[in-house]
Design a binder for these strands. Sequence first.
DNA 1: GTGCCACTTCAAGTCAACTTGAGGTCAAGC
DNA 2: GCTTGACCTCAAGTTGACTTGAAGTGGCAC
Lengths: 145, 145
Amino acid sequence: MGDLDITEVAKRSGVPASTLRFYEEKGLITSIGRRGLRRLFDADVLERLALVALGRDAGFSLDEIARMFASDGRPRIDRKMLAAKAEELDRTLLKLTAMRDGLRHAAACPAPSHMECPTFRRLMRAAASGAMSERTKKAPQPPRR
Amino acid sequence: MGDLDITEVAKRSGVPASTLRFYEEKGLITSIGRRGLRRLFDADVLERLALVALGRDAGFSLDEIARMFASDGRPRIDRKMLAAKAEELDRTLLKLTAMRDGLRHAAACPAPSHMECPTFRRLMRAAASGAMSERTKKAPQPPRR
DNA sequence: GTGCCACTTCAAGTCAACTTGAGGTCAAGC
DNA sequence: GCTTGACCTCAAGTTGACTTGAAGTGGCAC
């Protein structure tokens, strides 16, 4: 009833079966049993997966996310850690916002070459000096396939 | 005169020599000769490195950045590409902003478990709907090292 | 009852962007 | 002219998050 086999979970969550096995091995999710060899999951694994996705998106590593789950399976998220992550995200947001504005300007800038655009050069200097980020921090990469 | 050896470039740019060699191999920079074994670079390599840093920070891959340099060595940066990157950054920003607000709330939320906090659950659903369907995009990770 | 085939395990491969290590070379200082 | 040491090359290692491949297994349709 509430049990879903791995294919079902994959289908409903959009997470590939190979990743589900990988997540189980990592302790991010738990299978509730087997039908033959086939893993069975409780339906609440979907919520768990959503939480994992959330953590990933917020910039937590899988290991960090794993540490957030108590042994009883309920999320036990350190509030301090959350606040710290929010802080970090906030700094990232500032930087990315500046970057977006700069890119947008450079894209619309009438200077014959970007090297002659003051805004572009300012951005460049900022990136070079590392002034925008505390240390080398990268913006999100385009989706891998 | 205008020539800098690799150590000088490393010192002035903050980019390790190993990375400079790696970048040269990738075609991101070019050395103009050797003194003995030692690479010599024209001083304008510093500007080039700044450009690479900017591209990296904006979320371009090294390969993408390499493609921005035409064969003449002058940056040939497509305004459309910049605009597209700005767009992408913008979408990321929206998501990360929501995420930051959610984290901040969750950190302060009095609910015994985050799963019982309506705001947290809403955030989770939002992340699940956005992030899982397009589940390849990650927020920036904390600085390496 | 038997064959199919999607699942299983485990090891190894992939990708990006570098770094590290081993073994070699050469300009320069003494 | 010999030592020194920073550079050189090339190969392999690193990290995180997975994916892929080979070989095995068992529920289900026939």
